[in-house]
Write a protein that binds this DNA or RNA. Structure first.
Length: 493
RNA sequence: GGCGACGUAGCCAAGUGGUAAGGCAGAGGUCUGCAAAACCUUUAUUCGGCGGUUCAAAUCCGCCCGUCGCCUCCA
């Protein structure tokens, strides 16, 4: 089945046909590096990371460009406030961004260009726009004349006259039309500047993306992504700049992710209701956050709350517990790589085998439908259930069963690669969750272990009163005991 | 005011014409000394409401109600 993606430009799902067969070019607007990233950034970057990975998995040779906007009013303001050079600010937050993304398990894009390394390209585009009559200089600034571009607002599907009427933009004397936007800004004293045909100045906000995407992906490329809030004005302006300068289509498929909400309201800096990635990761495991993000379709809003994160963690624990059980069996019983001839599984084994055969096709079907990770995760849970049933029904695994278990484990690794999940050793991951939860409980692991030993002795002596006492005591403190043939383990409720 | 999105079980969430995935939580059962975990069964005759199109609608159309977003920097 063919990959279908929702294209903001057409407002419909379309079959993806690459510009160059077998290849895919993708540009995603990165961050303006003036502060720590919040979980809205986490969502956008995780979503496009999975899209990047899936395109690669589907066989495309992907060029993924994700920029840093490292020159901007907000960076300059912050630098002035701290009394440092703007590069001190941008370097600091580029590093912070890289750390955050690494913790969230993001794959490195093909290129991560910085706006300030592309001033030459920016100036070249502005010159072309002036030459073609789409831009004009005004007292050291250069503006894009939106009225010269008939397709303006085709992405956000707005109307220029209505925008103009309701515009809260200052109608500066420098602009011919209130909706015109700056391509180049005259630099004020003390601000960073670059030499240009219009004097010392710096680029406007939107032009850097046109320059960097053209540099690495060409004048026309396949995918351009970002948060929904970038549709207007950022992406609209990119289209205007690039298409007017190059005289050809800019982007073939526009992808936009939905917001992260807090109590059903958009999380944003201006509302002050935001959490940084760092804050969240103090409390939650990074993979849990990633799992939470992928549990909804990328275009839907998701509501961030402790309860929703806890539920996501419970779901991820279910999968990791299953994988840990598989690993334990495989560690003790080397599995034959192929199903032994003449041995076909029955009962739960047959069911697991069927689910397993359908796993990749169903996974791809979900992902081919506009990267439906929520549905894809549902497919995985289906296999987990069949696998658990198989494990419950099978005592000592026979070769056929071991082969099945080994293949199940392989498939989860394969799919996990695409989603950026399940990369940890399951036992270690579960242990990590346990110990982080244990920090929130007023009993030490050593004490717990001691009580477990005492309880085991009581049980051996059939002193169930005492053993239950211990169990209830621990439960009261939030520690749940798990008895098995191999002994007793525990987890935090 | 203009434009747009969404409303599916207690909660989260898939599902864009063919008779409601999955997860969390809950209930009953198997297992267990008793529990927990795991497994089994179960929890929406129904998809905000009202009409319409169709053999057939959560899915298409219209209206209404509700929630949210964009129109200013924002992932």
């Amino acid at each position: 089945m063919a990959l279908r993606v929702y294209n903001t430009l057409s407002g419909e799902k379309e079959v993806f046909i690459p510009l160059i067969p077998g290849r895919a070019g993708m540009y995603v607007c990165g961050v303006t590096v003036y502060d720590y990233c919040h979980i809205g950034h986490a969502r956008a970057n995780v979503v496009f990371d999975v899209i990047y990975r899936y395109l690669g998995y589907a066989g495309y040779d992907v060029t993924y460009v994700r920029n840093y906007t490292d020159i901007d009013d907000k960076i300059i303001n912050r630098a002035n406030r701290e009394g440092v050079d703007y590069r001190t600010i941008s370097d600091r937050y580029i590093r912070a961004f890289d750390e955050d993304m690494e913790r969230l398990g993001l794959a490195k894009p093909t290129v991560e260009p910085k706006a300030t390394d592309h001033i030459g390209g920016i100036i070249a585009i502005i010159e072309a726009l002036i030459a073609k009559g789409h831009a004009y200089e005004s007292e050291g600034d250069v503006y894009y004349a939106v009225e010269t571009f008939p397709d303006y607002l085709k992405l956000s599907k707005r109307n220029l006259d209505e925008m103009k009427a309701g515009a809260r933009v200052e109608v500066g004397d420098k602009k011919r039309h209130p909706m015109d936007f700056a391509l180049w800004k005259d630099s004020k004293p003390g601000e960073p500047w670059w030499q240009s045909p219009w004097g010392k100045g710096r680029p406007g906000w939107h032009i850097e993306c046109s320059a960097m995407s053209m540099e690495f992906l060409g004048m026309t490329f396949d995918f351009h992504g970002g948060g929904k809030d970038l549709i207007f004005p950022h992406h609209e302006n990119e289209i205007a700049q690039s298409e007017a300068a190059n005289g050809c289509q800019f982007v073939r498929y526009w992808l936009h992710n939905g917001f992260v909400n807090i109590n059903s309201e958009k999380m944003s800096k201006s509302l002050g209701n935001f959490f940084t990635i760092r804050q969240v990761l103090e409390k939650f495991d990074p993979e849990t956050l990633r799992f939470f993000i992928l549990s909804a379709h990328y275009r839907s809003p998701i509501d961030f709350s402790d309860q929703n994160l806890d539920e996501a963690q419970a779901g991820l624990e279910r999968i990791y517990s299953f994988l840990a059980a598989l690993d334990e069996i495989l560690l003790e019983n080397p599995a034959p790589p192929e199903l032994p001839a003449g041995e076909s599984p029955t009962g739960a084994g047959q069911e697991l085998q069927d689910k397993l055969e359908n796993l990749i096709p169903r996974f791809c079907e979900a992902m081919d439908d506009d990267f439906n990770t929520a549905q894809a995760l549902g497919v995985l849970f289906d296999v987990v259930r069949a696998g658990n049933r198989f494990l419950a029904e099978t005592g000592a695994p026979a070769p056929a069963g071991l082969s099945l278990i080994a293949r199940t484990r392989d498939r989860f690794a394969e799919v996990g690669q695409v989603l950026g999940l399940f990369g940890s050793r399951p036992a270690a991951w579960l242990e990590g969750i346990k110990s982080s939860k244990a920090d929130q409980i007023n009993i030490s692991p050593a004490e717990i272990e001691g009580l477990i030993v005492e309880r085991a002795e009581a049980r051996k002596a059939k002193n169930f009163k005492r053993s239950d006492e211990i169990r209830d005591l621990l439960l009261e403190k939030g520690v749940q005991l798990l008895d098995s043939a191999q002994g007793t383990t525990w987890k935090i409720r």
